[in-house]
Write a protein that binds this DNA or RNA. Structure first.
Lengths: 210, 210
DNA sequence: TAAATAGTGTCTCTTAGACAATATTAT
DNA sequence: ATAATATTGTCTAAGAGACACTATTTA
């Protein structure tokens, strides 16, 4: 009989780097390998609910951006037998990216996508590749980037998120021009001051067209 | 225990209209309702293989464009219990869109997406919507459109495919300009003559960047 | 020669991207 | 004043879309 799991690629930004949460498996198979958080779908929950539950168990966060990615069902992808997995990805704001003191996860850790561990469990390297690719594509034509920031942010911080996801530098003037004409951001009467330099205006996301 | 099915939205063009293959269910639940072809995933086959098998069983075609769409797993989507379905969509060239004399399908029929039957089984109306939406988006930045045509085709026929998918008319000159600069099409030394008018040159798809 | 469809160019507007100087704050 | 970061505009090139006439064939 076929069994179904969900795996959730959880993204956040750590030190200006796009990062994912991985857990070290405490049980066989693949004990000790790093894996994408996930688990079996329970009888009484939808796929989305299962993904949300995994997310909550690993990070404690509840209200996040979550999107289904792809369903992986190759034969032999899991040595335990016929297990297909529905992969999701989630975006967590930097100020909420705390790792829960998990029960079944022996260890959980944020990994920059630019330097992931060499050995990942099952087909998880493939799933991660796919998730990163999707996120890169999606930031080009949606506003998912805002999900990775706290409610109030500076335009430089927002640009930094885009740079982290795209993996390349972005021109400051062109970036601001584009954000402005999309009309998705609203200035606050607050400024962030850091060190001996001009303070930066804070903005918030205007929950417009997604 | 969770069970897994695949459903395959099979597109083709019939009389210049984007159409999908639907089967009339011969057994309960929802006997008599029109449904997307599909069935349970067998133990020894991958999800892709299951989708290809369904496609072959319904239409006899083997070598087609097939892409996973989304996995639907809401509670209560199937009255028989906990069944999740991995939806695919396929594109079949007009010259190969013959319906196989199916065994378990009481009846199979091409339906123009602009006038689908009122009552569809399970959540299949939703799945169809999603498939059409995906195909419309995809034709904007890929060459999937060629999959719906025979090996040799005229530019007017190609344009007609785009119009069928997009559901609107397209400017002939702009369309040809775009196709030409994409360099995906190769002229043949053959012409299609039909009635009392200037013959149209035939082209074939240059299997370039997809 | 009439009817029918094939084939072809230009102009405008918008968008994407390269590029550098001034403004404001704390020390 | 100096150091540090924030903020701002122009130009160019490419792409998208509106728009109409000529070419070729058969009946």
């Amino acid at each position: 009989m076929t069994e179904v799991t969900v795996d959730v690629v959880i993204f956040t930004i750590v030190d200006h780097a796009l990062s994912v949460l991985l857990v070290r498996r405490g049980i066989d198979p693949q004990r000790g390998a790093w894996a994408i958080p996930g688990g079996f779908v329970l009888d009484h929950e939808s796929l989305d609910d299962a993904a949300l539950r995994e997310l909550r168990e690993e990070t404690g966060v509840v209200d996040v951006y979550l999107e289904q990615l792809y369903t992986f069902g190759a034969l032999g992808r899991d040595p335990r037998g016929r297990i297909i997995t529905v992969a999701y990805y989630a975006l967590i704001a930097t100020d909420r990216a705390q790792i829960a003191a998990g029960t079944d996860a022996v260890a959980a850790q944020w990994w920059p996508v630019a330097s992931l561990p060499d050995e990942l469990a099952f087909d998880h390297a493939h799933i991660l590749d796919y998730a990163i690719q999707r996120l890169r594509a999606k930031i080009g034509y949606t506003n998912v980037g805002f999900q990775l920031l706290p409610a109030a942010f500076t335009l430089t911080e927002l640009q930094s998120v885009y740079e982290a996801i795209l993996g390349r530098n972005v021109d400051k003037r062109n970036f601001r021009k584009r954000i402005e004409q999309q009309n998705v951001v609203e200035p606050l009467e607050e400024w962030r001051r850091a060190g001996a330099s001009r303070p930066a205006r804070l903005y918030r996301f205007r929950s417009a067209a997604f």
